Amino acid sequence: MNFPSKLIEEAVNEISRLPGIGKKTALRLALHLLKQKENVTEELTKSLLSLRKDIKYCGICHNISDSDVCSICAGKRRERGIICVVEDIPDVLAIENTSQYNGLYHVLGGVISPIQGIGPDDLKIESLINRIAQSPENEKVKEVILALPATMEGDTTSFFITRRLKEFGIKVSTIARGIPVGGELEYTDEVTLGRSILTRVNYSAE
């Protein structure tokens, strides 16, 4: 790709480093910013710098936060006896957007993957164990929901965490895996279809 300016080329190269953005999209974004008033670009730059420098991670669940404890962990109306364990921050946002869950979270920061050199010590698993062990009597954890990917790595991580939690005698559950709404059985993979049969639920006509 030929550029009329070295400055445009540098901007395109930096923007195209973002996930899901190719050189053509990066060029459109760069030219769009160039057409805007100077203060628009300055505000964007300030916002990105502030994001990078000032963002914090919750000291309890490891979610992104503006303070040492995130708004979810600090929330008075959250069900403190339930912790949903997720792989990463986007999973928290996805579950929160459903408005169907009112408990707490724990962000692992990944899943166990020997191929990629990621072991249990590289994740926030020990932090989860300590959190449960040290929870006050009035906020005792009763259930841990494992909302991890339906992959070999996700299953390995779930198995490891379940074994570590055995000593606490608390309920360990996992999110249901099945046919998506609007999905056709013909196009569903065998593993998903098999799990849907095994984890079937009662049907009511009422």
Rank of each mutant, 00 (worst) to 15 (best):
N39F: 11
I125S: 02
G169H: 01
V111K: 00
A147H: 04
K37C: 03
I179Q: 00
C73S: 01
K56G: 00
D91Q: 04
R164S: 08
A26S: 07
A176W: 02
A176S: 12
I175H: 08
H106Y: 02
I118F: 04
I60R: 12
G20A: 07
I72M: 00
P136D: 07
D121N: 14
V111M: 04
E126L: 06
E143L: 10
Y57G: 02
I115A: 12
E10H: 12
K124N: 15
G183K: 11
R52Q: 11
L104K: 02
L31K: 09
L123H: 08
L198Q: 12
A147L: 05
N2P: 07
Y187T: 12
P90Q: 05
Q100A: 06
E38R: 15
R200V: 08
L34M: 14
V107N: 02
K24L: 10
I95H: 00
V191P: 09
I161Y: 08
E143F: 12
P120E: 03
K171M: 11
A150H: 12
K46T: 03
E139C: 08
I60M: 10
Q36R: 10
I15C: 07
A176F: 00
I82Q: 01
K140R: 15
R195C: 01
L146K: 07
A147Y: 08
I8E: 15
T156W: 07
E206F: 13
D91T: 01
